[in-house]
């Protein structure tokens, strides 16, 4: 709709409403993105006294950069496993909390606990839980007789990665369960009753009633979590610092190291733009699938 009806007055009102926000977004997003692109065409880094234009050299370098590809592979592994586990576990938790039983209200509140904890505190917390000498994980396992010697949970690359995924799952599953639960609560209860009377078994009921109701939420959860998991940083920083032997060096942490520890600003900007591109492509694919499904 359009109002006020006077065009000049409308423009003035619109400017007053939009300009403050636009100016902020312009300076915090638009200018930095353009400057990042500009940076990626320079050789601005520590040890270069007078940065100069190098064309697409940084982008060519990317293809020969083993550290970059290594961290992309690690990130893909992390994203696929973390998001898959979170979706399945989140759905199971939501199905449980959609039932009526004593204490369900309390559990729904406690579900917010992992979600609310700062990511970096989550990392500190799990680092302490995994501590090989004094951590409660080793202590518990020893007390119950599962192990006789302490395990160095973060001491070996592949295991550290699995432990990092577990720490991520603990925190992020909550959000997904919350979304699913909201979707489930839109299903009228008599749907299930009718299906039961007509002889549908539990799998059929899940497939024909539950799944359609949570499908829109599923896409939102899947795409948001994938995007966020690609950008994981705090957890890596607090839990492993990318180690051991770069075994948990996810791409966003790698970019941080290149930029702010090696002080290679141009190459850091190049990597961050490539990461942007990857996330953008994934989002577009999700969006296409979602539109197709909706039809």
């Amino acid at each position: 709709m359009i109002f006020p009806h006077n065009k000049k007055q409308k423009n003035r009102t619109l400017a007053a409403l939009l300009l403050p926000g636009l100016i902020i977004i312009f300076f915090v997003f638009a200018v930095p993105i353009l400057y990042s692109i500009y940076l990626s065409l320079l050789n601005f880094s520590r040890g270069v006294a007078d940065p100069s234009f190098v064309g697409l050299d940084n982008y060519f370098h990317l293809f020969r950069d083993d550290a970059f590809w290594h961290s992309i592979r690690l990130t893909l592994y992390f994203v696929v496993w973390a998001v898959a586990i979170e979706i399945v576990l989140g759905l199971l938790i939501a199905l449980l909390l959609n039932e009526k039983f004593w204490g369900v209200k309390l559990l729904r509140v406690l579900l917010l606990l992992p979600w609310a904890i700062p990511w970096v505190v989550n990392g500190i917390m799990w680092r302490w839980i995994y501590n090989p000498h004094f951590g409660p994980l080793n202590r518990l396992l020893r007390q119950f007789g599962f192990i006789t010697r302490n395990i160095n949970w973060l001491g070996e690359p592949a295991r550290a990665m699995r432990m990092m995924i577990l720490a991520d799952v603990w925190k992020e599953t909550s959000f997904i369960a919350l979304l699913f639960l909201a979707g489930l609560q839109t299903i009228p209860e008599d749907y299930y009753e009718v299906a039961k009377i007509e002889g549908a078994n539990i799998l059929q009921r899940f497939y024909h009633i539950t799944l359609p109701a949570i499908k829109p939420v599923l896409f939102v959860a899947l795409s948001l979590r994938t995007i966020w998991a690609f950008k994981s940083f705090d957890l890596v920083y607090a839990l492993t610092q990318g180690g051991p032997s770069r075994g948990t060096n996810l791409i966003n942490f790698h970019i941080y190291q290149v930029t702010f520890r090696s002080l290679n600003f141009s190459y850091g900007a190049t990597l961050s733009l490539i990461l942007t591109l990857i996330i953008l492509i994934i989002t577009v694919i999700y969006y296409q699938v979602m539109i197709k499904e909706a039809e």
């Binding site: 990042s36 940076l39 995007i227 690609f230 950008k231 940083f233 970019i255 941080y256 942007t276």
Partner: peptide, 17 residues
């Protein structure tokens, strides 16, 4: 789109500015 952007893309220039 701003939500998909990795923080590094904007923070490197902002850090320099």
């Amino acid at each position: 789109l701003t939500q998909m952007l990795p923080g590094a893309t904007i923070i490197i220039p902002i850090y320099l500015f």
